[in-house]
């Protein structure tokens, strides 16, 4: 039975190899990400696949592909899963490999849920470096931003995951230890002011340095992103972040089908899985198309300002150059691209 399982899988994946390596001396140029690192593709890759098949069979990874009675859909899903499992780090993928994995993910969603999602792999634009400013005189603690963020980014509803935290400070100090981010009353409360924190997309991000597998990195436009499929879930980045910017999927995240935002980005709001890290991406699926992040759009007070730091005509530049701004924990040398200011 055991060997039969293995055989099944190899049979399923075999035709794909021949497709990919068609014709010229098996260059395997368009093979997926796993090859990009292994360099000598076909034989070693399939050898490892076969080997790992045995190892993984026990974990139920191949459940659907093993069953003799499994239908075509199940088989296709298993094959897609298989290719997904062996793909490489997104950061190192070629454009074709990115397209291929996006297609697989969309296909897997269609097979699993019957609907259609759009996963973008849009890259960083030239001459763009995103920056964010937060007006602490304006924020009233309405939490509209949090609401919008959760809906936009498909965060787990079961654990109520939120990227943004709004801290309520009593006037007269700015000590986070004395602040309350758990308030339960009408806002704004008299004698208090509010301040939001989230991932600050540091120019010198400590989370990126510590990741043992390069699953998180800073994109050219300054957004710190995570490859959810490459993350091994060690949570070292979470320990390294001084801003509480990162969230972990302690169990399988769940978003009701009718609440799922289907406009997605590979590095942004596409559904995550159990045991991986996630965080604010400045709504990469929105910002890379010129739109404001959901929190900026939702804020009724205009306390949130987002834009291109490299554009001298942008509002974010005007804020930095004309208001008295500060950043949190600047002494740590993380260089956040998230400024606070007052009227």
């Amino acid at each position: 039975m055991f060997f039969k399982k293995k055989k099944n899988v190899n049979e399923e994946t075999a035709p794909q190899h021949t497709e990919k390596c068609g014709g010229d001396s098996c260059g395997c140029q368009q093979a997926d990400g796993f090859d990009q690192v292994i360099k000598k593709p076909l034989d070693r890759r399939s050898a490892l696949k076969g080997l790992t098949a045995g190892l993984l069979a026990g974990t139920g990874f191949l459940n659907s592909s093993c069953s003799v009675t499994a239908g075509d859909t199940d088989k296709e899903l298993a094959s897609l899963k298989w290719d997904e499992y062996f793909k490489g780090n997104y950061q190192l993928m070629t454009a074709e490999e990115k397209k291929a994995t996006v297609a697989r993910l969309e296909k897997m969603y269609a097979l699993n849920n019957g609907g259609k999602i759009n996963i973008s792999d849009k890259g960083a634009a030239k001459d763009v470096l995103y920056g964010y400013a937060f007006n602490i005189s304006k924020c009233q603690g309405y939490m509209d931003c949090v609401n919008a963020c959760v809906e936009e980014n498909n965060q787990d509803r079961d654990s109520q995951m939120q990227y943004i935290r709004i801290h309520e400070f009593k006037k007269g100090q700015m000590n986070f230890e004395m602040a309350d981010d758990n308030f339960y009353h009408e806002v704004p409360a008299a004698g208090h002011f509010y301040m939001g924190t989230q991932c600050f997309h540091c120019e010198n991000p400590p989370c990126v340095d510590v990741c043992p597998v390069k699953a998180t990195w800073k994109e050219k436009d300054g957004i710190v992103v995570i490859d959810y499929d490459w993350c091994i879930g060690c949570r070292y980045c979470q320990a390294a972040c001084p801003y509480d910017g990162r969230r972990f999927n302690w169990s399988t995240p769940h978003v009701p089908e009718n609440e799922l935002n289907k406009d997605q980005h590979y590095l942004g709001n596409r559904p995550r899985k159990k045991g991986v890290m996630e965080k604010c991406t400045f709504c990469i699926q929105r910002s890379r198309s010129g739109e404001n992040p959901a929190c900026v759009e939702a804020c009724p007070t205009g306390a949130r300002i987002f834009g291109n730091l490299l554009d001298p005509n942008s509002t974010i530049r005007w804020v930095i150059e004309n208001k008295k701004v500060f950043r949190l924990k600047e002494d740590l040398g993380t260089e956040p691209k998230f400024w606070y200011f007052m009227d």
Binding site: V213, C234, N249, M277
Partner: peptide, 24 residues
């Protein structure tokens, strides 16, 4: 690990070990 099945990502050569930056 959150994803023990993905631990092969750490193997130099086939994965991408973040050496020397990551102390892990």
């Amino acid at each position: 690990m959150g994803g023990p099945a993905r631990l092969w990502h750490i193997i130099p050569g086939i994965g991408s070990l973040n050496w020397p930056n990551s102390m892990l």
